[in-house]
Design a binder for these strands. Structure first.
Lengths: 351, 351
DNA sequence: TTGTACGCGTTATCAA
DNA sequence: TTGATAACGCGTACAA
């Protein structure tokens, strides 16, 4: 009996060489000549321990290349020191920047970040939430406010602190983000001022996507205020390919629109490229706008008129917010400002 | 004594409402009227249990919204069912696609993926490895073969199964990827065939980056074989901004080069844009090439000649490989083929 | 096929 | 300031 306690045993000669067990805290304690408790304190609450033991433990730990076992620690601590973020997709550079900023912020407070994307599948979303709950994330950052009801149910039952990031419409619940609606109002206003009256909107699907809805609303607000008819709206995915198709569809109508508002830069980039292929001059015959101000939007020809979103700031603020939420506090913050960036893809409406 | 065992106690009235404890497996077992062991088996090895108990347990679990505690499970299982991937940066769409494919593959085998990027900082890299080891990842996917020695030391000591992905040069250790060197040979060959003799190379920094080195070597191989002088080489970061500066620097030389080889599409995109600003005609006055074939490279004007890399396939194969490695097997596989994509940014050398 | 009891590695409590 | 010991929640021999 007690065999499992005998850590001095040499690797048994006749067996295959097996992966050697990683050193545990007891091993460190023994080498340092202190108790388990002292070793634990020396590493995670050094101020509670005499400098001498502290050093002895540190030395022993370094000597053994000891790394604490996160699973055991989580179990004892009843927190995992990890946070999950659920993105719609990882295939939009705007989210990559956001995630990076979020990760940086959490890292400062010693939290790890689980990144996952559901790629607009509700099933995937439920599965992701389930996995994150298994991992006992201490907090959850949700992108957008319009999550799957089932997923939200799971989150609510598990009582995991969570925040909504990205969108922050006036009437929505508290979240860290900006107003898609107001941003799109500016875009539309810009086009109307340029004399455009026949506008087509290339929108993302609005089910489970309050961002797409808010952007759509922003356009409608503004056209209606200006006494225009509601613009033709085409619904599609948020991809470059969808932008191509959208442009074709838009330009198949008679009379042709003079402006195409796209829900994202990705779509606008596709539309721009397809316009070039069709020989449609931008902006002389058609103005095109995007949304997000991804780095590439300034590299297209013509450069894209778009909405700049403070991605990094939102990522950092989301980190602040979820850290606060996990600490039981709650942060109120005003929506972030966005900025219309007027570039070459928009111009006066043709006569 | 034994008070902590009394799970029927009502929430104490006078205290603040606290976060209710999440249900444990015992709770499920009790509700299902079976033992802890049976409950455990019913959920993770259903075939070992009678259909009747299996169902009872499932029902109870669903009723309580039970989710297994990953930390406890890891501790008992001595594996975490998680894998880490260490990227140089998350700010290149090529890596985003790779990670997504990897994640998908691992997810099929019920593994979670920790994603982290060191952004070319060695310190960050060591910290990341340390964190991943704390989390007891069962395997590690390293992007590139040229990791920090210290980090590799940690990984070796911890004896964590790991694989190298992305690069796979002839003389390097086994890894899942493609030959950067051969790909760049093709690019250079293409330019030489177009009559270019004065070529400038805009390379990434080569310290700790075998990909940049291999690409550089590929260019040198080919120019030297063609009896040309070694091309002027400018070293810089892998960014759009660096591409802009690189182009300016390249075109400041007399005589000007007729072709600019860029180490990545990001750089090439910057160079292309800066050329437009300077009024340099591409490809009439200057041919420009990229590397990676990111989606946007086909949306630039002119479209970018570049090297297509089978990102998704590599991601999936990397998943296969690390799963195999964790199972104690090892996968041999030939390097993936790359493909030169000739588009509008390259043309005959000016007279 | 099921139940019991122990171990996984750490932190927290409580005495000393 | 330190040391002993009881959790933390789950998997799995082993016995029944």
């Amino acid at each position: 009996m007690g065999a499992s306690d005998n850590s001095e045993e040499a690797p048994s000669k006749s067996k295959v060489v097996t992966r050697s067990r990683r050193p545990r805290l007891v091993d460190v304690a023994r080498l340092a000549g202190v108790s388990l408790g002292s070793a634990s304190r020396a590493l995670s609450a050094p101020e509670l321990v005499k400098p001498k033991t502290r050093e002895a433990v540190r030395l022993a730990a370094a000597h053994l290349s000891y790394v604490v076992d996160g699973a055991a620690r989580s179990l004892a601590l009843r927190r995992s020191l990890s946070v999950g973020v659920i993105l719609p997709t990882i295939n939009n550079p705007i989210f990559a920047d956001f995630v990076h900023a979020l990760q940086q912020r959490l890292s400062e407070d010693n939290y790890s970040l689980f990144v996952s994307a559901h790629e607009y599948s509700r099933d995937a979303e439920t599965l992701i939430v389930e996995r994150l709950l298994q991992r006992s994330v201490d907090g959850l950052v949700l992108l957008g406010t319009d999550q799957d009801r089932k997923a939200m149910g799971q989150i609510a039952r598990a009582e995991v602190p969570h925040i909504f990031a990205w969108s922050s419409e006036e009437n929505s619940r508290i979240s860290v983000g900006f107003s898609n609606r107001r941003a799109m109002q500016q875009v539309t206003q810009h086009l109307i001022q340029l004399g455009h009256r026949r506008i087509t909107l290339l929108s993302g699907h609005t089910e489970y996507n309050e961002r797409a809805r808010a952007r759509l609303d922003g356009v409608l607000d503004t056209t209606s205020l200006a006494g225009l008819d509601a613009p033709t709206t085409i619904f599609s995915e948020f991809s470059v390919e969808a932008g191509r198709h959208g442009l074709r569809e838009a330009m198949a109508k008679t009379p042709r629109p003079t402006a195409l508002i796209c829900s994202t830069d990705l779509m606008a980039a596709g539309a721009l490229s397809e316009a070039a292929i069709m020989g449609i001059k931008v902006p002389e015959e058609l103005s095109i706008t995007g949304f997000d101000n991804i780095e590439f939007s300034a590299l297209l020809t013509p450069q894209l008129t778009t909405v700049d979103v403070p991605t990094v700031e939102i990522g950092t603020a989301a980190g602040d917010a979820i850290l606060a939420a996990m600490a039981g506090k709650s942060i109120e913050r005003a929506p972030f400002p966005t900025r219309l960036v007027v570039r070459g893809s928009t111009g006066p409406a043709p006569k």
